[in-house]
């Protein structure tokens, strides 16, 4: 269900917690599973639950509570843009409008070629660099003007 490499990463996470508390690794394990599979299908979540010896419903609760998990397939590049107050004051709206127009999609949608998903995000804790966007949950893009958005898109091939 998951590659040996992913399982090794999960085991490293489990080792951080006291014996018998392997459920503590569920957030990491789901993240590692998502990195491998692209999204968390119900059977992936249940596999993680079984691997950690926790009830499947408890793993589903975690996967549905935290908003960086993809519960549906997403594009090759998921671009999450922060639209909270500081980012809005610093120009998030024009960046979002530009991205929507250029990609031809709205928030929560994926381009027909499966390359880009656009998502509205909540605060990334990086307001000084606003407006900010996050690519595939890991790469933070700062000072997102329409030009900067073009540059980022051009680099995602």
């Amino acid at each position: 269900m998951l590659s040996t490499e992913s399982l090794k990463k999960i085991d490293r996470e489990i080792a951080k917690y006291p014996a018998g508390q392997q459920q503590s690794a569920v957030m990491s394990a789901l993240r590692i599973a998502q990195d491998e599979k692209g999204w968390l299908a119900p059977e992936t979540i249940e596999f993680v639950a079984e691997y950690l010896g926790m009830a499947p419903i408890a793993a589903h609760e975690v996967a549905t509570f935290y908003n960086m998990y993809n519960l549906q397939p997403v594009g090759k590049y998921k671009i999450t843009v922060c639209t909270n107050l500081p980012c809005t004051l610093m120009g998030a709206e024009s960046a979002v409008e530009h991205l929507k127009r250029k990609l031809g999609i709205g928030f929560g949608e994926t381009t027909p070629d499966g390359k880009f998903t656009l998502k509205e995000g909540e605060c990334f804790g990086s307001c000084g660099d606003g407006p900010v966007a996050l690519v595939n949950n890991v790469r933070l893009c700062a000072k997102l003007t329409p030009d900067e958005a073009d540059r980022i898109l051009a680099g995602l091939e």
């Binding site: 951080k16 917690y17 957030m27 990491s28 993240r31 509570f65 935290y66 908003n67 960086m68």
Partner: peptide
């Protein structure tokens, strides 16, 4: 000391 990451929940 160990690092634990959140995943999007204020």
């Amino acid at each position: 000391i160990h690092a634990h990451h959140g995943y999007g929940a204020y």
